[in-house]
Simulated scan of single mutants.
Amino acid sequence: MIVGLTGGIGSGKTTVAKFFSEFKNIAIYTADLEAKKLMNSSKIIKDNLIKEFGELAFVNQKLNRKYIAEIVFKDKEKLANLNAIVHPEVKINFQEFVKNNSKKDYIIYENAILFESKSNLICDIIITVFADINTKILRVIDRDSSTKKEVLNRMKNQWQEDKIILQSNYIIYNELLDETKWQVNKIHNILTKKAQNF
Results as ranks from 00 to 15, higher is better:
Arg143Tyr: 11
Phe130Tyr: 15
Ile107Met: 07
Asn100Asp: 07
Ser119Ala: 13
Ala80Asp: 08
Glu70Ala: 13
Phe94Trp: 00
Lys76Trp: 07
Ser145Asp: 02
Lys136Phe: 09
Asn81Val: 14
Leu82Val: 13
Ile92Lys: 10
Asn93Pro: 13
Lys149Pro: 13
Tyr106Ala: 09
Glu96Ala: 09
Ala84Met: 11
Val151Leu: 01
His87Leu: 06
Val140Ile: 08
Ala112Val: 13
Val90Lys: 04
Ile85Met: 00
Tyr67Asn: 01
Glu77Ile: 15
Lys76Val: 15
Asn111Pro: 12
Ile92Ser: 09
Asp124Pro: 14
Asp75Leu: 11
Glu150Leu: 06
Ile127Ser: 05
Ala131Ile: 15
Lys91Glu: 03
Lys103Glu: 05
Asn134Cys: 10
Val90Gly: 03
Lys149Phe: 14
Asp124Ala: 04
Val129Phe: 00
Phe97Asn: 00
Asn83His: 01
Lys99Val: 14
Val72Trp: 07
Pro88Asp: 03
Asn64Pro: 12
Ser145Ala: 08
Asp132Met: 07
Tyr106Cys: 01
Ile125Cys: 09
Lys91Ser: 05
Ile141Val: 13
Leu138Pro: 12
Ser102Cys: 14
Asp132Leu: 14
Lys104Arg: 03
Phe94Met: 07
Glu96Asp: 05
Lys78Ser: 07
Asp124Asn: 10
Asn64Glu: 00
Asp75Ala: 11
Asn93Cys: 09
Asp144Gly: 01
Ile71Glu: 00
Glu150Asp: 10
Glu110Leu: 08
Ile71Phe: 08
Ser146Pro: 14
Phe130Lys: 11
Arg143Met: 10
Val140Leu: 13
Asn153Pro: 15
Ser146Lys: 14
Ile107Pro: 03
Glu77Cys: 13
Ile127Arg: 06
Lys136Ser: 05
Tyr106Phe: 09
Asp75Thr: 11
Ile125Phe: 09
Glu110Ser: 02
Lys118Tyr: 01
Glu110Gln: 08
Asn134Glu: 09
Lys148Ser: 08
Arg143Asn: 10
Ile122Glu: 02
Asn64Ile: 12
Asp142Lys: 13
Arg139Asn: 05
Thr135Cys: 08
Glu70Met: 15
Glu116Met: 08
Arg65His: 10
Ile71Tyr: 04
Tyr109Arg: 05
Asp124Phe: 05
Asn120Arg: 04
Asn93Leu: 12
Tyr106Val: 10
Asn153Asp: 12
Asp105Val: 11
Ile108Tyr: 09
Ser102Val: 15
Leu114Ile: 09
Lys99Cys: 11
Ser117Asp: 05
Arg154Ile: 12
Phe115Ser: 01
Ile108Glu: 01
Val129His: 08
Val72Asn: 00
Phe97Gln: 05
Glu70Arg: 15
Glu116Asn: 00
Val90Pro: 06
Ile133Trp: 03
